[in-house]
Amino acid sequence: MIEAKNICKRFADREVLSGIDLDIRPGMIFGLLGPSGAGKTTLIKIITGQLVFESGEVKVFGKNVADLTGEDKRQIGIMMDDHGVYDRMSCADNLKIFADIFGVPYSNIAKTLKEVGLEDAAKKPAMKLSKGMRARLRLARVLMVSPKLLFLDEPTSGLDPMTMRYIHKLIMEQKEKGCTIFLTTHNMEEASVLCDEVALLNEGKIIERGAPEDVCRRYNHQRKILIHLTTGEDIELAHDTYSAGKISSLMEQGTVETIHSSEPSLETVFIELTGRRLESEEEVKYA
């Protein structure tokens, strides 16, 4: 569906992407994970032909981006993180413009608004929508044309947990319809829930990739058992036979208050690889 080989991109004298390879197969949800400024938006722009790049090769539907026909482009839905809506116009009128452009029947407008849960807001001007509703309207705009390939640049960034789950549900529905989805996020939990495959992007390089569970399995050495004792002390044990004995003796003494096992997650893998978190501190606070 999407093939990229050795993409490099620089802005002025700064290299933002250095040798990106991708192979995204039909029907999967691919997640590009990385902190703010990693180059996620830049990569989407390159794949969708919005940005020229220095070297490398990109193929979408097996063709060079420049060779995509109008019909090909009609099947690609693109939602960039900064895309706006027409504030003074109602939700339905916003969609109508794009129904006209894409030659989609008007009956799709109500259907799509219902799909994203905006049927009651159809006549509401977009400027009166909440942030979450606005995000769903932006999504409705790309879903209305029933795309075969969907690019979603940070579809849930800055949204409340409920809207986030709602959008996850919508993305999964698209996948069930056979749509291939390329999404970016800096939320690792989102990526583990949604994606069939992820790539961790850091400073312009893909530092790890694969199915989320495979990636985590590779970092199994991160698995730990955390025990909180009645004395207030915390201990960390490795997953091995020595620990089994230690735990059972602690249990017999009756000093175990709580016991947890901690598995590697995309977040801990990322931290191990880069020494930095995916989300900035403020974002964690607001999440």
Partner: peptide, 13 residues
């Protein structure tokens, strides 16, 4: 300013 022109261009206008 409101980034709607980009959306139009992306829709092949």
């Amino acid at each position: 300013e409101k980034n709607t022109l980009r959306v139009l261009m992306m829709a092949n206008v």
